[in-house]
Design a protein around this nucleic acid. Structure first.
Length: 303
DNA sequence: AAGTATCTCAACCGCGCTCAT
DNA sequence: AATGAGCGCGGTTGAGATACT
């Protein structure tokens, strides 16, 4: 009876003895014929389970228990934007990482982002960044406890920074309609959307011409919101849209305490004037644990 | 110190593809 | 050509660890 056959299958955490049997099998026959392990009576595990265990845990040269480096994060972000959720493919670019590792990394990153966008303000400190809404959509407040600053910024990031610093006050920026941001299906590609659907015009004309929007979105996204921001707000928006500016990952707070000494790479080598001299940098030094606290209040007034 | 929230990781499940029969 | 087994992949879940209040 099939039920009896299924009953013999072990599930759950692997024991050391099972690992040993699996390793011996691979030594003998190579990483294949997974189903034969059970049919030979070596293990009461499905072939699938055996393969998974080997690929994710027992395979040589795995970086088990080792957090993703900034470089690895950068690669994942870049390749995810390029390939989508092709974790196995992305993992091939990261020696020692499995598709499961990449998948877990991305998943927790997205969860953090989702929570940041959805969680209500919990303190008087975060109240100042509370989003005022006039629509009937439920709108998240913006709060983040951690930021991560990739040391691998690219020229696009630098371009964004310098672009932003050139914007004059009261320019109009087309933004992704908020309801789409709140929609979970969109939410999980939020940073990707901003990064890849927005086109940032960095021409000299636009840097100097305050009447033109510097951030333009594809026509499909331009329909709804015309938002007006101060130049400071736009600086932050540009950082938001930088694929290598990962505000969501943890960073050593002790290092942030002396942020001036850190090497942030290109995005921070030429920070916008507001960051170099203004209140943003000052706050950043003193209160590194709340990214959105750095945003001027006016930036969300129109959402 | 205790309770709660969040994160990380390992493992399972279902689907689809490939290949042998 | 049809079928089924084996495999690979992406999505999801749950347990334990850690951080926060």
């Amino acid at each position: 009876m099939a039920g009896n056959r299924e009953e013999g299958i072990r599930k759950g955490p692997w024991k050391a003895e099972e690992d040993e049997v699996l390793i011996n099998h691979v030594k003998k026959y190579g990483p294949r014929d997974w189903s034969s392990i059970r049919s030979k009576g070596l293990l009461q595990r499905t072939g699938k389970s055996c393969r998974l265990r080997w690929v994710n845990k027992l395979r040589p040269n795995l970086k088990n228990g080792c957090k993703f480096s900034l470089e690895e994060e950068r690669v994942v972000i870049e390749l995810q934007a390029q390939f989508g959720n092709k974790w196995a493919r992305i993992a091939t670019y990261l020696p020692g990482r499995t598709d499961n590792d990449v998948k877990n990394f991305w998943s927790s990153r997205q969860k953090r982002l989702a929570r940041i966008l959805q969680s209500p303000p919990t303190s008087s400190k975060s109240q100042k960044n509370k989003v005022e809404v006039s629509s009937d959509h439920e709108v998240p407040s913006f709060e983040a406890r951690n930021i991560s600053l990739s040391s691998e910024g690219e020229s696009s990031s630098t371009a964004l920074q310098s672009s932003s610093s050139g914007i004059q006050n009261s320019e109009t920026i087309k933004m992704l309609p908020l309801p789409d941001l709140v929609n979970p299906s969109k939410l999980f590609n939020f940073d990707q959307d901003l990064t890849h659907q927005a086109e940032f015009n960095t021409t000299e004309n636009n840097l100097c011409n305050g009447s033109q929007p510097l951030i333009t979105f594809p026509p499909a996204l331009q329909a709804q919101s015309d938002l007006t921001f101060s130049s400071e707000s736009r600086d932050h928006l540009a950082r938001f849209s930088d694929p290598y500016f990962d505000m969501l990952s943890s960073v050593d707070s002790s290092k942030l305490g002396n942020v001036a000494d850190l090497d942030f790479g290109p995005p921070f080598l030429e920070p916008p004037e507001t960051i170099r001299t203004g209140v943003v940098r000052e706050k950043f030094d003193s209160e590194p644990d709340c990214f959105f606290d750095d945003f001027p209040i006016d930036m969300f007034d129109h959402i």
